[in-house]
Design a protein around this nucleic acid. Sequence first.
DNA 1: CCGAATGAAAT
DNA 2: ATTTCATTCGG
Length: 938
Amino acid sequence: MKGSNRNQEHSSEGEGAGKRPKRKCLQWHPLLAKKLLDFSEEEEEDEEEEDIDKVHLLEADGLEQDVGETEDDESPEQRARRPMNAFLLFCKRHRSLVRQEHPKLDNRGATKILADWWAVLDPKEKQKYTDMAKEYKDAFMKANPGYRWCPTTNKPVKSPTPTVNPRKKLWAFPSDSSRDLPTPKKAKTEEIPQLNFGMADPTQMGGLSMLLLAGEHALGTPEASTTPCRPDISESPELHQKSPLFQFAEISSRTSQPEGPSKQCQASALFQFAEISSSTSQLGGAEPVKRCGNSALFQLAEMCLASEEMKMEETKLINSKESDGGRMKEMEKGKEERDMKVEKNNEAGFQKEAEFEKPSKGNIRESKDFRNFEELQVDNVMAVKLEDPKEMRKEPEDDQKYSHFPDFSYSASSKIIISDVPSRKDHMCHPHGIMFIEDPTMLNKPEKIKKKKKKNKLDRHGSDKSTPKKTCKKRQSSESDIESVMYTIEAVAKGDWGVDKLGETPRKKVRTSSSGKGGILDAKPPKKKVKSKEKKASKEKCSDIIKESRPPDFLNISASKNAPGEGPEGIKAEPLTPTEDALPPSLPGQTKPEDSDCHRKTETCGSRKSERSCKGALYKTLVSEGMLTSLRANVDRGKRSSGKGNSSDHEGCWSEESWTFNQSGTSGSKKFKKKLREDSFLGSAKLDEEFEKKFNSLPQYSPLTFDRKCVSIPRKKKKTGNMSSESTKTSKGPFQSQKKNLFHKIVSKYKHKKEKPNVPEKGSGDKWSHKQFFLDAIHPTEAIFSEDRNTTEPAYKVKNALSIPNTPEPAAMQEPLVGSQKRKARKTKITHLVRTADGRVSPAGSTLDDKPKEQLHRSLPKVTETYCSDDCSHNTVEEPRSSTPEMPAVSAFFSLAALAEVAAMENVHRGQRSTSLTHDGQPKEMPQAPVLISCADQ
DNA sequence: CCGAATGAAAT
DNA sequence: ATTTCATTCGG
């Protein structure tokens, strides 16, 4: 109840006005009910209105969830965090250092110090951070094409989120979750189908939770891919299964068709893959697996691209195919089935067998193998199994009734992506059982997915009989079976594998093309496109894939085993296979493991089938690998990543590929690319790993350097503050500031200022060796990093700067103020309001800012005088740093600007004392630091 | 859950 | 022009 209301509100608020109404509609339960009843119809509708559909689904989900677990859904939906900007990166990287130096400082204080450092930071170094931030952003955007920075005012409160998912960070999965799940709250996010990844925090990512999440994502993707294929797997998973394939399809499709909505999904998928790979690679340890350049992911990307290009060619192919007529359909089916089978084999075999203990012989074998793994992680598995069965059971019901949604809903948001394949991995690897949850989540996906699932299920169900409950239910929807088959066929033809769930974009295509049976024709063309390109890529990919596939023995084994198993299970598949054979001679082995397919393809290369098969194989392999890697990675991480290497290679490759792909994808970021290339490490992968790598690679400056800088810096800050010459109006500043108590701000700033001086103190240590030593002691890690040199460099720079303090200052001064800077300026103005010697109030910086040097010169004399007096009187604590022996040396370096700053400070101090501003005792501190400086100068 | 910082994006 | 939001984590 509540949830529904919330959803409505949120939805309305969150998204653009256009969609809101729809969402509102969603609110209506009746509609939802209808939808549930008529899946097929709904799908069609979806075609026309993807967004709407999504919304509905989301809404529906929300409603359902509301009934059951509104919160859950929402939580998973959480949208990806916006990428960090350069400054944030810097903060992230250096905050720890600051804290170490100044344990007493709270984050705010540390932030201020960081800001100071940032201000002081050489432009060159800043550039590094900005570049990285840019790259990161680009990658992120690619991953989440539709991502919005500011989802309008409506805050996605997500209040309920926490219920199911413990993890805050759950990044919604790109495919479905982003759109489908839109929790009511997230309406805003809904507008943008962005995926929810958790790129943002590498640190968080580092945590087990992150790993798990990553694993989930990975799993989710695979599931999606597999699900569609496998009949066995329960319905819910199927729905999700689509997601991976779907994503790929989207990617391909998008490449061909640049549709706004679809892009998001695609990016998300890639992104996920990338993440997965990266995560895995990270776990594995950084191996130089660039060879992976051709990683499956990359290949996929290529395929997509190629598909677009090939469209022209495809048309030709299509013509030829058309001649074939009905066969094409069969062929497609066969291919699809094959793919499905393969996936099924992998996924279904493992999962279902393990969970359901399907009768399939081949599966049994696999299951045993898996079981071994499972045994390893018995606990987890157990938990998972327990959950799964329930979910499975529920799922069927869900198909019939929504009531279940609530249960799943929570998981759905996060797990949508979870793929079947991964699921098995989950069983094997996942200790947490999260994976399992994910599977259920898959089921969650509620509306859209369900529909799709149903279709898919129907197809699969034939074979699925093994699973009693599900099959029964599935079968019930006999009508859907046919549709599902058609749908799958069409999807295959189009190249949308998974299509589905998310489906918004994919659905559109699919539906549009295949809404009915006639869709096939439409579908064909897309296929051709994809294929043609795929072929190209496939060849290369195949080789690559093969490599990748090797590592995951599981996959291979499973695939081989599956093949036999499939025969029995997938009656359909067998018949189809023949058709397939007709297409590509090479593919004969439906069951063939991916590797075999790839090889054949690679060898035969030319045949279309081969391409397709390759695709499927690639996809599977990717998924499976990714899953495996992700799982392993997760497990490893969970364990503490004791086992680094096993999957690392694959993953690494993926990550790299993905990264490369992303880069390539982003034409705009070419510049960045170059940079990335230059910095191999930086350029590596966007994924977490990449991010982490890059992040780590970012130069970390020793506090000392900053400290020194800080000494000189203060003026800069002031300058910045001064920059806003108009400070007089500071009051006009944003309402925000007004809202907040100026007093508080001022006070806090002063406090911080105090802190600052302290920082410098530490840093004040003059000698490099000393500093370095200090750093090493404190931050061994830094020493480890190549960055050390960076640090050293900066330090040198700093020295230089100190020697010639003016240089840095002017640069800073010159820089144009950014919007944020404006704020800063305001604040600074406010905070720095100082009374001039005259006694009238003026922004401290104003004079300095405009013409720092000149002013400085002017002020110097005064300042010095004042300082002298002050010092004499105050000379209290002032700055430890100054107090330190270093003081004198530093003082020597001080430039006029510094003096000017001091003077400004002095003025402030005076003003505070005399003026009302001083309401706080703080003023003392302020003046103190400057005072020391002044003394030194004298 | 606020805040302090900066910056990018969105409104 | 202004607001939002990203990270961080103590209070």
